[in-house]
């Protein structure tokens, strides 16, 4: 996978979806994330790269308040979704997460049928009124996740019976089914083989037409392939953020350059 081909850069001039300013995260006494400013744009794939433990996943989990589930985590600063602060006391994280979906590192289908996995989100959020509507949502979501053709004959068999790559696409379909506005992906391909990875990457590119996509990846090649914007994190700092092409070909910060050329990491 030495292919350093850079994805087509048709960076749209679309509006900012998420604006983060001065975000700090503390885990107990550890200062995990220091003063991060970033803008996530609609219709773009934004990649977070950096060595392990650099804070990229931590920041991703701030964007839909998944850090709330860790008692010791404390987030300060402001993160605004469409101009509304998501850490405002009036914001219900449940409502937020319906708008900001998430796909995890390891495929984690629920021990239910494929259909029930995808239907779970629409059901809990009450997005559909009838069974037919729900069927429809499940089908479109599976189609968007490029899984429909493989599973349409066994929608009621358990989701855990699929292969790793299929499971991850099922999880993407599950996230897509609630029609989020932002899709967060935490190293979605790290547990997959190269063929499944390619399928998922292709999918990500298609999805950015509908949502802002944020992807955390430990693979620079992947970031280069799928993203339009790239942010490089190191030791809890956001070192550099910019056009993917610029980061990979002409990094401004020496740390970014060391990482890209393989000296850190």
């Amino acid at each position: 996978m030495n292919d350093m081909r850079i994805a087509e850069r048709d960076v749209s001039t679309s509006e900012t979806k998420i604006a983060a300013r001065g975000v700090q995260v503390h885990y107990g006494t550890t200062h995990a994330l220091k003063d991060v400013d970033i803008d996530i744009l609609n219709g773009n794939v934004t990649a977070f790269i950096g060595p392990s433990g650099c804070g990229k996943s931590t920041f991703l989990r701030c964007l839909n308040r998944m850090n709330d589930t860790i008692a010791a985590a404390k987030v300060t600063g402001s993160i605004k979704l469409d101009g509304e602060d998501i850490y405002d006391a009036k914001v219900d994280p449940v409502q937020l997460r319906a708008k900001v979906g998430m796909v995890f590192q390891k495929p984690n289908p629920f021990p239910k049928s494929i259909y029930d996995n995808v239907a779970y989100g629409p059901k809990i959020h009450g997005l559909t009124r009838s069974k037919a509507e729900l069927d429809n949502v499940v089908e479109t979501s599976l189609k968007k996740a490029a899984l429909w053709n493989e599973v349409k004959d066994r929608l009621h068999s358990p989701g855990t019976g699929l292969s790793g790559g299929q499971q991850q696409r099922l999880c993407i379909a599950r996230a897509v089914a609630t029609s989020p506005e932002v899709l967060l992906m935490d190293e979605p391909c790290s547990a997959l083989d190269p063929i499944a990875t390619a399928q998922v990457e292709e999918l990500i590119d298609e999805l950015r037409g509908q949502f802002a996509v944020v992807i955390v990846t430990h693979s620079m090649q992947q970031a280069a392939r799928v993203s339009q914007k790239t942010a490089f994190f190191h030791l809890g700092n956001l070192v550099e953020f910019g056009e993917t092409g610029q980061i990979f070909t002409n990094p401004r910060d020496p740390r970014t350059e060391s990482y890209i050329s393989g000296r850190i990491g």
Partner: peptide, 24 residues
């Protein structure tokens, strides 16, 4: 797509819709 989104009660995060209140 849009037909699903239209079922969402409130589009602002700062106002909890009826369903969210019920769920809470």
């Amino acid at each position: 797509m849009s037909d699903i989104s239209s079922h969402r009660g409130s589009s602002s995060l700062l106002v909890a819709d009826a369903r969210t209140k019920r769920r809470n």
